[in-house]
Design a protein around this nucleic acid. Sequence first.
DNA 1: CGTCGAGGTGTACGCCGTACACCATGCCGA
DNA 2: TCGGCATGGTGTACGGCGTACACCTCGACG
Lengths: 229, 229
Amino acid sequence: MADHARRAPLSRERVLREALQAADDDGLEALSMRALADRLGVVPMALYKHVRGKDELLDAMVDAVVAEIGPPPAAGPWPERARALILQARAVMLAHPWAWRALETRTLPSPAVLDHMERMIRVLRDGGVSVDLTHHMMHTLGSRLWGFSQEVFASPSPPAAGPDPETLALMAERWPGVLESAASARHDDGTTVGPGCDDAAEFAFAVDLLLDGAERLHRAGWTAGTSPP
Amino acid sequence: MADHARRAPLSRERVLREALQAADDDGLEALSMRALADRLGVVPMALYKHVRGKDELLDAMVDAVVAEIGPPPAAGPWPERARALILQARAVMLAHPWAWRALETRTLPSPAVLDHMERMIRVLRDGGVSVDLTHHMMHTLGSRLWGFSQEVFASPSPPAAGPDPETLALMAERWPGVLESAASARHDDGTTVGPGCDDAAEFAFAVDLLLDGAERLHRAGWTAGTSPP
DNA sequence: CGTCGAGGTGTACGCCGTACACCATGCCGA
DNA sequence: TCGGCATGGTGTACGGCGTACACCTCGACG
């Protein structure tokens, strides 16, 4: 095996890049240290010379993805700047569908994570939003700050094409509201041909609702202790 | 070993109950089929006579927890009924801190899950909220419908007691906004002695903001196609 | 030319979920 | 009464995982 000398030497960079590619290709659950080593034509333990362990690797992967989220627009009303920043985050998360799952499992915020938070906070603060309201809004935005919405169950109706008429009848009896609500997903014109509803629209709706709420509170001179209405 | 005849026979119920207890005791990540079998004084494979596999067991556990969430108050303005239902869900999730993690990993909604959704949808629809707005609100509530808020990073500042003054100075330079925002957590009187901020208050703030937003849209006669403002 | 350290290798351990063959028990119809 | 059979607990084994640890190789450098 003379080729082991010939192949490009490993490096933290190469390991990280290949890990990102592997996750993009095959999903996060298929990413094992062994599989990753295979992709690099190397024995599993070789990776540990460049990475402390799988956990640290995931940290680095998350950091890399979050770093793709750029800064907000330089100017404009703060709600629009915030909205743009969030939608940018969403675009990044859509490009790496595994990323939000990885993000959730991290315990400590990485530098890129703090950068993103800092930017959002700055948008609000520069818009004149109080420290307290900013703080609350960061909590309220929750995962949407990162470009995804934790919905627990993506589609209430059976996911794939044919909603089996038998179970459908059963649902109509016990969960009519769920059925009705799910049906309202496809109501309007063919903007969403897929099985579910328009994720982008739902995401935007939620973000707008949240930012509008914040703006209203801000304009009303909300301070801690007041309740939202 | 005559005691194996003497001990209470296994059953799906016993397996499920012990699994719930084990998760409450030791956390979800410590719950393995082997550990669970040990708790029941039985060999691992014995469980498989009562449960199809770990995945189905987790489904059942989630179902059991979600079933603890009761119905909403019978009467009252719909936003208050909705609020009460959500806070009930939150109480259940607080009693089983592992549950939200398990909930997230499930792919198909169980009956109890659909029941809870149905109840929430009914609260809105009975309040006169349109099908479309109801649908949007279910999405917008997201994980909060289930009593938790996906925040990705619970505390922006170092979690435990002493925020190491060195890193703190470093943060002050690079992430002043994050620091300022984190500091605002402890601002008011000693209602929150812990390291972080008042989770309950943050949760309530977010829920109120969301429900107020919905109520305002509803009263304004919102229909699909209109944007929130 | 000898040494040394960085980096790739091989083996091994302890976990995990679970397939499969086996065996104990108690019930039930003949 | 007895044979067969279903129910449910057992034992062994497999393939996967992350990773500790000892080893080897090889280029750089004093």
